[in-house]
Nucleic acid binder design. Structure first.
Lengths: 117, 117
DNA sequence: CCTTGACCTGAAGCAACTCCAGCTTGGTAC
DNA sequence: GTACCAAGCTGGAGTTGCTTCAGGTCAAGG
């Protein structure tokens, strides 16, 4: 499939996909005779993973490291595991941030309530 | 209190505070005879609010709008309320993103488990 | 008086996109 | 078969939101 579909399936934007390819966090994407990118199902899976990692705040440097490890072979699995576990911890931190912010907003809104109408 | 303390109390960095002031999302900060910034308790409260809004993904444009409204007077409270409510919605979205990503990570890690050692 | 530490400013640098101008290419429409 | 259009391509500029840096001020301690 082509880039437009890859974008809509993965969640990333077209430009972001091209940018990611240039940055080296995608494997080489096959090209058709027309020199346009053709994405495989595995490509889409990878893009989707990147989408969620980005969405939850993983920096590109880490994604890059993860991609390189992935490419290097199965013996890097412990390292990759470590990266994902660390990201899990990061998600926990984010969740408590959300909790905190939600409480704060609720409080602010409760004050504003008094001024209603 | 001075900028270093304001930073450590609010959570923002020193440079970020100066940047926010330049960007117009802070009220004018009082200066001492030495021309250095002196932060009031209200200043710190405002900075802390901004810290949490930023931490949970509010764009500066929105913060700016909020700051301007705040400065304009009490009759803008409905508008400010709207911004905060919208941000609450945004937090909900973030939370489901976290859920989604956590599930994905758990799945990935369960696959890696087989390769253990 | 000299140094040290905290602070100042304006400007450059950086991450991660995002948009743009100008150019192929393949497909349909006359 | 050629005219046109959508979708894709590239290299490069622009944007957001900080972050770092170079060079300078100021007050206090030794």
């Amino acid at each position: 499939m082509r880039i437009a579909e890859a974008a809509s399936r993965s969640g990333l934007g077209i430009d972001t996909i091209r940018y990611y390819e240039k940055s080296g966090i995608l494997p080489e994407i096959r090209r058709g005779t027309d020199k346009q990118r053709r994405f495989s199902v595995e490509n889409i899976e990878w893009l989707t993973l990147l989408y969620w990692l980005r969405e939850t705040g993983m920096p590109m440097k880490t994604m890059h490291r993860f991609a390189t490890l992935y490419h290097t072979g199965d013996h890097t699995i412990p390292l990759r595991k470590e990266i994902l576990l660390e990201h899990s911890e990061h998600l926990k931190k984010r969740r408590t941030d959300l909790d905190h912010c939600e409480k704060m907003l609720a409080y602010k809104l409760s004050i504003y309530k008094d001024y209603e109408k």
